[in-house]
Amino acid sequence: MKTSRVLAVLVAALAASAPAADAQEITVMTRNVFLGADLNPAIGAPGIAEAINGAGTVWNELQATQFPERAVPLAAEIKASKADLVGLQEVALWHVQQPSDGGAPPISPVAGATAATTVAFDFLALLQAQLGSSYKVVVVQEEFQAELPVNADGNVATGTGPLASLGADLDARLTMRDVILVRRGSKVKLGKTRGGHFKTRYEPNVGGLEIPVDRGWVSVEARLGQRKFRFVNTHLEAFGDTKIREAQAKELLTGPLKTKTQVVLVGDLNSGIKRHNQPEKPGDDLAFKALKGFKDNGARQSCCFSSLTDPRAAFDHTVDHVLTKPGLKTVRARVTGNDPAARTPSGLWPSDHGGVISRLRLRG
């Protein structure tokens, strides 16, 4: 046999026996789906009367941002990504009660007020309906919950219940959730799930009533062949002092990120080290920098549209991340959610954030 033929046979044999690159590669995605409204008019209000009016602003924005419609392109993004694991943030659950009975603890000033129980919008159920059988829920973590009376029509003369004089038309309750999804048919095998809340949290005061804004994380133990890893999804604080989310990042390091297993961390950190066409705001990078030893495997500039209806809106900074430790090789990474063709029939962007998709090569 000629030498050239021998070499060819040896190369072919070695190629056949060597593991394929994709046998050790996973695709992950982080996606903030946007809870539907800016909460600041309510939780940033100086008193109860202003908070009820602010809640009306929030409620009306929620209606205008139409999550049932936005769920369609969001689900299409997730399915097209073929991500093995997806971390979702701001997967809101909105309950309503009408007529108002004064809200519910911890914000309500009315003794005996009860929590709203009628579902108005369940973002997870709406998204699952669009995903069909392509993805299933691994774990759901409930975060911030609060209920306020809502002056939906801006008219104090049409109020109901014990706070009718302040224009309360109904009560609306928000439950924030972080979720992990897995693609059906993925070769990634899943094990134990965990979740927790940060001890450090933002606690605004509305009319003398303290609002505990819980944030946290969820995780799942995973394996691809013999390669084990931990997948963690988180959403750090967006409001208040930037040192709050820095402290939350440090809690991650002593909590779910403290492991000898390789870790893939995804989520909205509300923090980054690079901005585009604008200066860095003081403290914006603290949480990101606190995650020492982690490699950034994500594409940059995935945030944030100030309006879902602005066709010229563009992402200009980085808060959504895919991070790994020990640092994994990024095969490829991209941002979704900024394609004008993906806007809904009524002209809405899928979210105020983009999604970040990264294909990673595991170690071992």
Rank of each mutant, 00 (worst) to 15 (best):
F288A: 07
A16I: 06
R183M: 11
K289C: 01
R70F: 14
R334I: 00
A172E: 01
V213P: 00
P162Q: 04
P345I: 06
K325E: 09
G225R: 15
V213Q: 03
S186N: 09
A71H: 02
L174Y: 14
E246M: 14
V182N: 03
A13T: 14
R201S: 13
A238T: 05
N40D: 08
L35A: 14
F288Q: 06
R184Y: 03
L170Q: 05
D284N: 10
V335L: 09
A55N: 03
N53S: 12
V11F: 11
A83Q: 07
G185W: 11
A76L: 03
H197N: 10
F198A: 04
K289G: 00
I43G: 01
V213R: 04
I52Q: 08
A8L: 15
A113H: 06
T193W: 04
L14I: 14
S219M: 11
L253E: 06
G240F: 02
G216T: 11
S271M: 09
P73G: 09
K292Y: 03
V206H: 02
G36N: 07
R300Q: 10
G272A: 05
S100F: 12
A55T: 07
V110F: 12
Q226V: 06
R359S: 14
V266S: 03
T158H: 05
A129D: 12
T193E: 05
F288C: 02
K187R: 13
T193D: 05
A164Y: 10
V179S: 04
D214I: 01
K258V: 02
G167W: 04
L35G: 12
